[in-house]
Simulated scan of single mutants.
Amino acid sequence: MKPYQKIPIVECGEPLVAIPCNHFAVEHPHPYVKAGAPYGDKSPYYLRQTVVERLLQAQAALQDRCPRWRIQIFDAYRPLAVQQYMVNYSFAQVVADQGLRLDELTEAQRERCWQQVYQFWAVPSSDPTTPPPHSTGAAIDVTLVDAIGAVVDMGSPIDEMTPRSYPNYFADQVGGSRFHQHRQLLRHSMEFAGFRQHPREWWHFSWGDQLWAWLSNQEPINSHEPLSHLTPIARYGAI
């Protein structure tokens, strides 16, 4: 169990709503749909209603600094079946990247590969007290596009399972200042709207889930809203 999963959830019952994708940049087809993830009749471009409202605030904050830049949505709502599929998909990817074969793994190799996967992917738990963040409709994976619609270089791609994904990885790397500045721009824009950033993923932000509540309880957020609005209780569970 990760520390944030000890945070209690008091489900508020807020609905999932469609993200107004015309306001943002999006990938078509969705990356996980291309990978074969089983969304069924669900859409990845949904979030809880308040989270959508805050995402619009984040984009407004971005455009105050960089006119005509936009947030690009990589992933948002993720049904539990999709979480399970992508965890298995990522495990197979780690195995292949290490030059191994799934049907020939030793127990030690299997354990090492799973440890790498679960540094970045949440366990696809069906326990209502420990839902994967994306399955709550409160988490979103995002990057930036510039004024001409080009994807901004963040130094590493979304979902890369290496330390380069850590938000501040390029802060003290030779030649990495541009990547760090881009990541900071994304972070400041999202935090202005109350989001919190995953400690190991520069692209992952959430509002209202267990991780958000846990992070908010660790340190003050750089937000325009008063600290009295922050609480160590999550308002969104699995949906």
Rank of each mutant, 00 (worst) to 15 (best):
residue 3 P to M: 05
residue 3 P to H: 12
residue 7 I to M: 12
residue 11 E to A: 12
residue 11 E to V: 09
residue 11 E to T: 04
residue 12 C to P: 05
residue 13 G to N: 04
residue 15 P to Y: 03
residue 16 L to R: 00
residue 16 L to E: 01
residue 17 V to M: 07
residue 17 V to R: 06
residue 17 V to C: 13
residue 20 P to W: 08
residue 21 C to V: 14
residue 21 C to D: 08
residue 22 N to T: 11
residue 23 H to Y: 07
residue 23 H to V: 05
residue 25 A to E: 01
residue 26 V to A: 06
residue 27 E to C: 14
residue 27 E to T: 14
residue 28 H to L: 15
residue 30 H to L: 09
residue 33 V to E: 10
residue 42 K to C: 09
residue 43 S to D: 02
residue 45 Y to G: 01
residue 47 L to Q: 00
residue 51 V to G: 13
residue 56 L to Q: 05
residue 56 L to T: 04
residue 57 Q to R: 07
residue 58 A to R: 05
residue 58 A to S: 09
residue 59 Q to I: 02
residue 59 Q to T: 09
residue 63 Q to H: 11
residue 63 Q to F: 11
residue 64 D to P: 00
residue 64 D to F: 13
residue 65 R to Q: 14
residue 66 C to Y: 08
residue 69 W to E: 05
residue 70 R to K: 08
residue 71 I to K: 01
residue 73 I to D: 00
residue 75 D to C: 04
residue 75 D to F: 08
residue 76 A to F: 00
residue 77 Y to M: 02
residue 79 P to K: 02
residue 82 V to R: 00
residue 88 N to D: 15
residue 89 Y to M: 06
residue 92 A to N: 09
residue 92 A to C: 08
residue 93 Q to V: 06
residue 94 V to G: 03
residue 96 A to M: 10
residue 96 A to S: 14
residue 99 G to W: 04
residue 99 G to Q: 06
residue 99 G to K: 04
residue 100 L to V: 03
residue 100 L to I: 08
residue 101 R to D: 15
residue 102 L to P: 11
residue 103 D to V: 09
residue 105 L to R: 07
residue 106 T to A: 14
residue 109 Q to D: 13
residue 110 R to P: 09
residue 113 C to T: 05
residue 114 W to Q: 05
residue 114 W to G: 00
residue 115 Q to A: 07
residue 116 Q to S: 03
residue 117 V to D: 07
residue 118 Y to V: 01
residue 119 Q to S: 03
residue 126 S to G: 12
residue 127 D to H: 15
residue 130 T to F: 14
residue 130 T to A: 15
residue 131 P to Y: 11
residue 134 H to F: 13
residue 134 H to V: 00
residue 135 S to E: 14
residue 140 I to V: 13
residue 140 I to R: 00
residue 141 D to N: 10
residue 143 T to N: 04
residue 144 L to P: 10
residue 144 L to A: 02
residue 144 L to Y: 03
residue 145 V to Y: 00
residue 147 A to G: 08
residue 150 A to L: 03
residue 152 V to M: 11
residue 154 M to G: 05
residue 158 I to N: 08
residue 164 R to V: 15
residue 165 S to C: 15
residue 173 Q to S: 10
residue 174 V to I: 13
residue 178 R to S: 14
residue 180 H to A: 12
residue 182 H to F: 10
residue 183 R to M: 15
residue 186 L to C: 13
residue 189 S to R: 01
residue 190 M to V: 07
residue 190 M to L: 07
residue 191 E to C: 10
residue 192 F to R: 04
residue 192 F to A: 06
residue 193 A to N: 06
residue 198 H to R: 07
residue 203 W to N: 09
residue 204 H to V: 03
residue 205 F to E: 05
residue 205 F to W: 01
residue 208 G to W: 06
residue 209 D to N: 11
residue 209 D to P: 03
residue 212 W to S: 13
residue 212 W to M: 14
residue 212 W to H: 15
residue 215 L to D: 00
residue 217 N to V: 06
residue 217 N to R: 05
residue 220 P to Y: 03
residue 220 P to N: 04
residue 222 N to S: 10
residue 224 H to P: 02
residue 225 E to G: 07
residue 226 P to G: 11
residue 226 P to H: 04
residue 228 S to P: 02
residue 231 T to D: 14
residue 232 P to M: 08
residue 232 P to H: 06
residue 232 P to S: 05
residue 233 I to E: 02
residue 233 I to W: 02
residue 234 A to K: 10
residue 237 G to L: 08
